[in-house]
């Protein structure tokens, strides 16, 4: 019972934080709130019995991606003297809130209608629990000798999948190097499309 209560409270916190992230216009505060959002998610993953995922989310979401976003903010802020205005998001002229709200409302309503048929949260007889997962839980220990089933599935049963994921991470690193490795070109304000020629 206490699990369910913590679960409900943390999810409510998450929803409130996400609304605050959308409504704030100060980008610095938004990024900090996003770090809190990630930390709350990590807590929730622990409640839902996924310590491996919680580990990753805490290190990645609250640590690395917050630092990367702050670095981007430092690189993209204006040259104004006053610090306050630097981080303000400008009010959008072309974007009216009503059309996006309508789109989001209709999509959300359709998705909520879809949840009526989903098996309840924590149902041990749901289809997701009865097929391949049962095989992994029963055979991972005798077949690989590794008590942590997540590691066994990650590295052994689905090793090919993980090889692909590592290749994606590697490719993203190479792409970032190609885009912003190297020094900034001297004439940084030119608009006439010489962006592709600086050293990479």
């Amino acid at each position: 019972m206490i699990d369910i209560l913590i679960n409900i409270t943390l999810l409510a916190f998450l929803a409130i934080t996400s609304v605050a992230i959308v409504r704030l216009t100060n980008l610095f505060a938004t990024i900090m709130l996003f770090g809190i959002f990630s930390l709350l998610s990590a807590g929730l993953f622990v409640v839902m019995d996924a310590p491996d995922v919680a580990f990753t989310e805490a290190a990645v979401g609250a640590g690395i991606s917050t630092v990367l976003m702050l670095a981007t903010l430092a690189l993209t802020k204006g040259q104004k003297k006053s610090h306050e205005e630097d981080y303000e998001e400008k009010p959008s002229r072309a974007h009216r809130p009503w059309l996006p709200l309508a789109v989001v409302g209709i999509t959300g309503a359709a998705l909520v209608y879809g949840t009526w048929d989903i098996p309840g949260f924590g149902d041990p007889d749901a289809p997701a629990q009865t097929h391949v997962a049962r095989y992994y839980i029963e055979n991972a220990m005798p077949e690989t000798g590794v008590p942590n089933i997540v590691t066994a599935v990650l590295a052994s049963y689905r090793g090919f999948d993980t090889l692909g994921e590592v290749a994606v991470v590697f490719t993203a690193g190479v792409a970032v190097l190609l885009l912003i490795g190297g020094k900034r070109p001297k004439s940084s304000t030119s608009l006439k499309g010489d962006g592709g020629q600086d050293e990479t």
């Binding site: 996924a50 491996d52 995922v53 990753t56 990645v60 997701a128 599935v153 689905r158």
Partner: peptide
């Protein structure tokens, strides 16, 4: 354990 594996890699990607 299967969703944990999928999401674990998805977070880093």
């Amino acid at each position: 354990p299967l969703p944990h594996v999928l999401i674990l890699t998805a977070i880093v990607v």
